[in-house]
Design a protein around this nucleic acid. Structure first.
Lengths: 325, 325
DNA sequence: CAGATTTGATCCCATTGCGGC
DNA sequence: AGCCGCAATGGGATCAAATCT
């Protein structure tokens, strides 16, 4: 049962020093004065022995795991977010924190991750249900972001709401007489889709238009057009994302409907498919440069109590006009 | 600094029992007989107090973290793999193990995850470099799968090699006179692409053909055809993946090249884009049913010493013929 | 004297307050 | 003042042994 793991005690033994001194050197403990000779000796022996501090022991002693868990929804996450995660991971690492991401799928994860690793912070892109926040806290998680408290930062609001309004504006600029929203049938996307739809609809109504809805199922054959313009009518379709847009455009092209003259379509997310498609899809790119850094800063702030830097994600929706509108 | 965390000692105090007894009840320790009354009392109090065992303390005491880390390459991972991960996660959970996945991106991750959480097992889809295996072991990771030892299971071999051979065979069946391989320019995909290419080339040569290569850059404008058939010639393109296929097909269509008559293209992975594209892309679907269960079984085996069940991933490449070939 | 119950004592390993030389 | 050691702490797992029927 005895493991062959090298512990700080082994180093103490090998150097003839106490565990405490070894600890001070290894942690660069402030407020301690260690002679350079001793310091070097400890570091040398630690290296020779191949010492690795035991994370669990450290966590226990410090009362902090230095782990940050980021819970991601089961969405098709764009390229931009991927880069932001890298950014966040790097920024956290610089403070000795480790980022662990987990994708939350509907009926998966019997045992929540935060009970298995006890992170200092659990972050998410959407607000957590109050009940879940309570459970995390009860399990010992110190900070939950966002935690639903008043005035709290909500990533989703910054990130995902400008786009649909831009879609609607763009379609009207292009002379659309009828507006249709292409909604995904996938229930996993329901909540996000609702938010986007609401934004699009609000903007449409502000501009004196109504917004019809068509549900785009995944199983439906592509041979049948999803949206059919009446004779001489210009229809504009705002799609939940590029895949929905591709389905609308694809089915229209096959049915001989002229895109974009009869049917103008705009997608969302600027996924690779948008640029590749024939005709290339007009879309909205959400650029959240700085989101990763902001998330990292929030986490560092709540763990180490660092002052919150005035970073902010510059979430901006950008119109990418191509051939489908 | 006193934390308000509820510990087993609190339960002992509240029930008037010893920490040991409390521990036996909470862990269902085998070989211990606890009176039903005591057991109920402990469980009741634990619940009332909102007791949550401290994972780090548990890990320290047991010498095992019950965490399994799965390192994923930065590939576009298919739908199938996503489901397999769920499957693996569930299966591990049933044994009290927690799965943490991390995507390894080139120059990310300054501090390796396995040093921050000290998993019992680190798994990967590809063989790890020997040096890395050594480092993991040195950090205290008990098992690495695959670890490069002789006869070891290698997921990648099972998963990713049949497809390219099928692509080549299919194109020849379709009457291709010249064979071209569409290679991604993205360096992240280089190693995987090399493997696929080698397989395709081998098969082509076995069948008495040569395999040219065209590199598909992401930045290249879609207005210029990537592959141009000579007059009266039938060219077959085997693409690394569906995105490459889409680029080849898209640029050809815009240039007025007839697909599939002059240029037949087949992709790989059966990503959503393949079905959506106009013309719909012929592709290869890799189905690895059971992979998740196998990974879980391997991990459970190496952590708990359970006998290895005779599960195996039934990795099979399946041809999905659509319009592009 | 069993057998059923329960407990004291140690260990896991790093961190850190207090104190000694 | 400069260097360093003792000992307690964090929370749970577990073995040997005591106590109760």
């Amino acid at each position: 049962m005895r493991s062959n793991r090298v512990t700080a005690a082994d180093i103490a033994r090998a150097t003839g020093l106490s565990r405490a001194t070894v600890g001070f050197v290894l942690n660069n403990t402030p407020g301690q004065t260690i002679s350079e000779a001793t310091r070097q000796r400890v570091l040398r022996v630690a290296k020779d022995l191949g010492y690795h501090p035991h994370p669990a022991a450290r966590t226990l002693a410090r009362g902090r795991s230095n782990i940050v868990v980021l819970l991601l929804p089961d969405w098709p996450l764009g390229y931009s977010l991927g880069r932001n995660l890298d950014e966040a991971s790097q920024a956290l690492d610089a403070h000795g924190l480790t980022l662990i991401t987990q994708t939350i799928r509907p009926r998966t994860s019997a045992h929540p991750l935060w009970e298995a690793v006890l992170p200092d912070v659990v972050m998410g892109l959407l607000a957590f249900p109050a009940e879940e926040v309570r459970r995390m806290r009860a399990a010992g998680v110190r900070a939950v972001i966002p935690d639903g408290s008043d005035g709290q930062f909500r990533v989703d609001q910054l990130t995902f709401t400008d786009g649909p309004a831009m879609q609607v504006e763009h379609l009207l600029t292009r002379g659309a007489q009828r507006l249709v929203w292409a909604q995904p049938g996938d229930p996993r996307l329901a909540s996000l889709a609702q938010e986007r739809y609401a934004t699009a609809r609000r903007r449409a109504e502000e501009l004196g238009h109504t917004l019809e809805t068509v549900i785009v199922g995944t199983d439906r054959p592509m041979t049948e057009p999803l949206v059919v313009p009446r004779a001489g009518e210009r229809v504009g379709v705002a799609a939940f994302d590029d895949e929905m847009a591709a389905r609308v455009v694809g089915s229209a092209v096959r049915a001989g409907i002229a895109v974009p003259d009869q049917l103008a379509v705009i997608g969302h997310d600027d996924t690779p498919i948008a640029a590749l498609f024939v005709p290339a899809l007009t879309t909205v790119r959400i650029d959240v440069s700085g989101l990763g850094k902001l998330m990292a800063a929030l986490a560092v702030h709540s763990v180490l109590g660092n002052p919150m830097p005035a970073v902010g994600p510059e979430a901006r929706a950008q119109l990418i006009v191509r051939e489908s509108s």
